[in-house]
């Protein structure tokens, strides 16, 4: 330990020496609102949550006039100290956590800084000073389900199996969040096309593309021609299967069109950029709402990408989405509720 201390001193001297040589002055005190964001460990460049969240921050910087600091953790173990260090400065109007694996750390840090406002995206942390942003998952299932239901009825498309009209969805895990997606999907498909048949299954893993591909192939064998993969990394296997058999696949969360440009019909999008922007906007307007904030089509936090979707279908689906957004149509979030809901609507 003596050596350790000695070494610290040496290191200190080294740093001090460098600082003396340093150039430039430290930034002046900011008058603008300040926001901090802690990304998920995947870091920027993930073409998914982190990149999308960063886009949202940049938009907020431009449109809402905020300044922000960001950090890309290298390890799960870093989340807590990073959140803590941000919170300790007491100069941020909001600190945002991206991704469900920050929940443990945020639970601890938010309790220690009760006056600091936090937001977390895509999971729920139960604390009085944390706004948790989760999604009305059924709504995005509904729009992509509608696209699927209309597409499978198309004639003359080589990717569509003639006269079958079967669509499918594969979920990652059999958990409420995914079941809501599946329910929305079934509801959407059946709402636009009463003749359609919908198959669904769960992989049981978020990162098992091989098993997912197997399941996808079984569905394609039965004549499924539009398949939604709401299964995380496992979904890659399903997309691959659809590409190999030249059927349609639907991606999830972000635009996965680059994976199979001729077969990805659309994507069920989680628009994290809009979510982050909204969270900041709420704080600036004095409308910070701790607890669960469910976002959906109306807030622009969920949606679909256009990819290979033909214009006529876009027009129909946009009309439907507007009905959902306005509250005219309430999408069922459980599979068992889909049939009664259809009946009630007279379909």
């Amino acid at each position: 330990m003596i050596r350790a201390r000695k070494f610290s001193v040496l290191l200190g001297i080294a740093l001090a020496a460098v600082m003396v040589m340093g150039i430039g002055a430290s930034g002046a005190a900011a008058a603008k609102p300040r926001v901090a964001i802690v990304f998920a460990t995947g870091g920027l460049g993930d073409k998914s949550f982190n990149d999308s969240a960063y886009d949202g921050m940049k938009r907020a910087e431009k449109e809402l006039g905020i300044e922000f600091d960001k950090v890309e953790p290298q390890a799960v173990a870093e989340y807590e100290s990073l959140l803590m260090r941000f919170a300790q400065t007491r100069k941020y109007d909001l600190i945002i956590s991206i991704g469900f694996d920050q929940a443990d750390a945020l639970q601890v840090v938010s309790a220690r800084f009760p006056n600091q406002k936090f937001a977390i995206v895509d999971t729920v942390v139960d604390a009085p000073n944390v706004a948790s942003y989760a999604y009305r998952e059924a709504e995005r299932g509904f729009v992509v389900g509608a696209i699927a239901g209309l597409t499978t009825a198309k004639k003359g498309d080589p990717r569509v199996v003639a006269d079958k009209q079967i669509v499918g969805v594969i979920g990652g895990m059999d958990i409420p969040l995914i079941r809501a997606n599946v329910a929305g999907y079934i509801a959407g498909a059946r709402y636009v096309n009463p003749k359609v048949q919908v198959k669904y299954a769960y992989v049981g893993h978020w990162a098992d593309p091989a098993k997912c591909k197997e399941m996808a192939n079984a569905m394609l064998d039965e004549g499924v021609d539009v398949l939604w993969l709401a299964a995380g990394r496992s979904g890659l296997g399903g997309i691959k299967a659809a590409e190999e058999r030249n059927r349609y696949a639907i991606g999830a969360d972000s635009d996965q069109g680059y994976l199979a440009p001729n077969n990805i019909l659309t994507n069920g999008m989680k628009l994290v950029d809009n979510t982050v922007y909204m969270a900041i906007d709420a704080v600036l307007k004095g409308k910070f709402t701790p607890g669960i904030n469910l976002l959906g089509l109306s807030e622009g936090a969920l949606g679909y990408s256009k990819n290979l979707v033909p214009a006529d279908i876009i027009a129909q689906v946009d009309k439907l989405a507007a009905k959902v957004a306005s509250g005219e149509l309430e999408v069922p979030d459980d599979i068992d509720k889909v049939e009664p809901w259809l009946k009630a609507l007279g379909k």
Binding site: F7, A14, G22, I23, S26
Partner: peptide, 29 residues
């Protein structure tokens, strides 16, 4: 030796940080 090496590495780091348009003083403090 290690102390000198750390110092040297930080000096080169300073050049990189400076060249990338950040404040060396702020970074190292």
């Amino acid at each position: 030796y290690s102390a000198v090496a750390v110092l040297l590495a930080l000096l080169i780091g300073a050049v990189l940080i400076g060249a990338s348009g950040y404040s060396v003083k702020e970074a190292y403090s």
